[in-house]
């Protein structure tokens, strides 16, 4: 009897352990993305950042500050060479202001595919602000260690009828901190187009935020763009009229 009880307790424990572990692993791909978005998806912020563009042997450093809300963003470059160059995103539209020409240009159509300021980011990359789960059907591919951190490897395939730039994306999400550590972006043909890697993460206002990341355009050799977040302020006060063409030209 006593022996049976022990066996029973052992069996129950085993069931509980396997059951619990089942609950733990039963987290869905969508939940992982949502957890990640809670960390990384910024609705409104004021940031200062540095962009280091490496192309072959050339290296260019650009600094910028940006103000954004849920629909709009105004970015101004502050390094001497590009000082005064500004981008304004309003909903689905993007404008650029060149201080030398004192001219505003709307960036649309095929121009959105071009490189932004010579970096590995396209203008289109700047425009993407929708939450990923609305655009992609995610599934967990595997669990894998990346730079010593255990990650979920997720695959997102574009949902039918949704307009997305990249047909497939594979994302490595830190299992503990739910922050994306690596992302691969693929064309419909299966060709790898871009890879972004996060090199440094910091906890700011109880959110894990990527501080330093690198984007590589895989269609071009020897090119990468490092992005360093120098400061960030969440939910700043935004004066009226900031996201207007007038303020772009001022």
């Amino acid at each position: 009897m006593k022996k049976n009880t022990i066996v029973g307790i052992l069996l129950l424990s085993l069931l509980l352990i396997t059951g619990l572990s089942g609950i733990v692993t039963a987290i869905t791909a969508e939940e992982i993305i949502n957890y990640r978005d809670k960390n990384e998806y910024i609705i409104s912020a004021r940031i200062e950042a540095e962009m280091i563009i490496v192309n072959g042997g050339r290296k260019m450093t650009k600094t910028l500050r940006s103000l954004s809300d849920d629909q709009n963003a105004l970015t101004e470059f502050t390094n001497p060479r590009d000082r005064g160059t500004k981008f304004l995103k309003r909903g689905e539209d993007l404008w650029m202001f060149f201080p030398e020409a004192e001219d505003v240009v709307k960036i649309s159509g095929h121009m959105l595919n071009q490189s932004m300021m010579g970096s590995d980011f396209s203008y289109q990359d700047m425009m993407e602000s929708d939450q990923l789960t609305e655009l992609y059907q995610f599934k967990i591919l595997q669990e894998e260690e990346l730079d010593g951190r255990l990650c979920y490897v997720l695959e997102g395939i574009a949902r039918e009828g949704k307009e997305v730039s990249y047909y497939r994306r594979v994302i490595w999400v830190d299992q503990e901190r739910f922050v994306g550590l690596k992302e691969e972006l693929y064309a419909r043909s299966g060709r790898l187009l871009k890879v972004s890697m996060v090199n440094k993460i910091e906890q700011i206002d109880q959110r894990w935020i990527p501080i330093e990341s690198v984007m590589e355009n895989k269609l071009r050799e020897n090119t990468r763009t490092e992005f360093k977040l120098l400061s960030i302020e969440f939910n700043p006060e935004i004066a009226e009229g900031v996201f207007t063409l007038e303020s772009l030209q001022s």
Binding site: A158, G161, Y167, R191, L193
Partner: peptide, 16 residues
């Protein structure tokens, strides 16, 4: 050569 194109759904594709 590679042609980077966007389909009608605005999704990137490559023609190699």
């Amino acid at each position: 050569l590679t042609l980077l194109v966007r389909s009608r759904e605005r999704t990137f594709n490559t023609i190699d």
